[in-house]
Amino acid sequence: MDKFLFLVGEGFKNLWRFKITTITSIISVFMTLYLIGILFTIGDNSQKLIVYLRSKYKIEVFFKQEISDTKAQKLTQEIQKIPGIRSATNINRADAARIFKQQFGEDILTLLETNPLPASCVVNISRTQSSAIDIAPIIAEIKKIDGVDEITFQGRLISRIERYYDLLFKTLTGVAIVILLVTISIISNTIKLTFYIRADLVKALKLVGASNIFIKIPFIIDGILQGLIGALLASAALYGTIFAGNHFIAAMTNRIRISSDLFIGLWLTIVAVLIGMIGASRATAKLLK
């Protein structure tokens, strides 16, 4: 226990003894984590937007004239089983006539004395998957079903929205990975610098019989603390930005609101501690070879 307290104390002392390099590193960690937080918030909000847009995707499937309402009901159930489909609502011929009347103000039975409208179904697709939805295979599957006459959907619009979302998702992920690697490198270099400055301590420790892990631990604690402080500052700044953003938007409209993950601060802290640890381990492993 005394040994552990000594090592933790050394980690804190390192932080204090090398204020300038530590502050530089913390600022870098703060900035990169803040950027990651912003990217995460953009990703999270665009995910919610895509879920909303997908809920508006509608595929209308019209069955052949000769298909009875009972058969149409069965075909609707069959369509619902296709992967990527969330729900399929059956519209029988009578319902179709009712909808016609609602939309055009005329009763088709009075006009034609018969109901020419076919049974149909309205298909909603799954909306929560993170990758882009490819509508073409779903349409192909529906077309294979015997009794399907015509399918209408906003194909071009859906594929455009999905393509943009996919591009945004990939870009955000790529940028976040690059930023994380840069942060690890920054922490690693700061620890290396501290390590070089502390060459006398490392030498003294080796001479008195300290193991490599004993020498490493204070530097790793130093890295973790840098990450932790950077994460706390980044979380505060991020919550502040979201709050200010919502305040600004509220002045213009109350229909849009930036939503924030309550645990984003916690996630940033976990990420920061991990990158602090990885950065410091990387630096010390190279120097203590």
Binding site: D2, K3, L205, V208, G209, A210, F214
Partner: peptide, 11 residues
């Protein structure tokens, strides 16, 4: 005291 800390001796 440094070598004693390394050896894990109590404070």
């Amino acid at each position: 005291a440094l070598p004693l800390h390394v050896m894990g001796i109590k404070r």
